[in-house]
């Protein structure tokens, strides 16, 4: 490429600039569309969602089908019959990895839903009210940020598993997985609270908020109608990062042997097949790649969203 060609590769600014009122989301999307890595992230996340939605159609076998065992084809390498091979108990690896997608999304979205509710309420309240409440909440957040969460979560998951034995709670399906989701959410809110606080602190001094106050909008109206929508882009970025982080955490917890043995999750598959890594490596590589691509997707998406909605931060 010669130097003369270079300026032409840069796209001209949107033509409607100034003549049509473009919302924050439309402008953000226009910037996001030009970001290749961000789009790659969106595609990866989109694939995971599609796989999760259509897993019964995509999976070649039932995830609990062990029929390969009967034909002495457990630990079989990838073939036309089993595209990703079979594992040590004769399960079809491809089918199990596909059925792991909904589990991963439930973990990521579920835990972040819990974390977002706690984080936005605490952080928003703290930033908007200020004073003693702010000081107290920030100290509380700092406590949660310094605590070695992963270590505490392992103890909690193990102990909860013992406590429920013999109680009616035991009947709930996927109880162990639900516990992990809940705990990840309860421990995952501090970054969201910090971001919410910073955004509320910044936005509450803005002119449009003062204007709203002048025309007599109530406190709840200002917080939910005026400040929160403007804080959303930053919050979505931190939540997208958190979804990837939670999926990774669940995978680690399951890999260490504290997961839900009844749920089909990628970490659980890695833990289940680790002993036979030497004989059937495909059964470990496939779920590992699934975790990697999903977490990468959410991280790239978060990076792309930051660039699109907070161009101030970009150099």
């Amino acid at each position: 490429m010669t130097a003369a060609e270079q300026p032409s590769t840069r796209k001209p600014p949107p033509k409607h600039h100034g003549t049509r009122r473009l919302g924050m989301w439309v402008l953000g999307w226009q910037r996001f569309r030009r970001n290749k890595t961000g789009l790659l992230g969106l595609v990866l996340v989109g694939i995971v969602f599609l796989v999760a939605l259509f897993c019964p159609l995509l999976a070649p076998y039932d995830p609990n089908d062990q029929s390969a065992m009967l034909e002495f084809r457990s630990k079989a390498p990838p073939s036309w019959k089993n595209p990703l091979g079979t594992d040590r108990m004769g399960y079809d690896v491809a089918s199990r990895v596909i059925y792991g997608a909904p589990t991963a999304l439930v973990v990521g979205l579920g835990s972040m839903a819990v974390a977002a509710v706690i984080g936005i309420i605490l952080g928003g309240f703290s930033g908007y009210i200020g004073g003693m409440a702010d000081e107290f909440l920030m100290r509380f957040t700092e406590f949660f940020l310094v605590v070695p969460i992963f270590i505490v979560i392992l103890v909690m998951v193990r102990i909860f598993g013992i406590v429920v034995v013999g109680t009616p709670l035991e009947e709930i399906p996927y109880l162990n997985l639900s516990t992990i989701i809940l705990i990840l959410g309860v421990f995952g809110w501090p970054p969201i609270a910090r971001m919410a606080r910073a955004e509320f602190l910044r936005l509450k001094e803005m002119e449009f908020v003062e204007a709203a106050r002048c025309i007599g909008v109530g406190r709840a109206g200002i917080i939910f109608r005026h400040i929160l929508p403007n804080a959303l882009p930053s919050l979505i970025v931190i939540i997208a990062l958190g979804i990837g982080g939670s999926i990774l955490m669940e995978a680690m917890i399951s890999f260490l042997g504290f997961g839900d043995p009844k749920a089909i999750s990628w970490g659980q598959l890695l833990s289940f097949n680790y002993e036979f890594l030497k004989i059937a490596p495909w059964a470990s590589i496939a779920p590992g790649m699934a975790i990697f691509l999903t977490v990468l997707g959410f991280n790239l998406l978060a990076d792309g969203l930051t660039d699109a909605f907070n161009p101030r931060l970009k150099e």
Partner: peptide, 18 residues
Amino acid sequence: ALLGRSLPGFFLGILLIL
């Protein structure tokens, strides 16, 4: 480096062992 941040630690360990 960006790829490295998304790679799960235990998966890298498994790949190294393999």
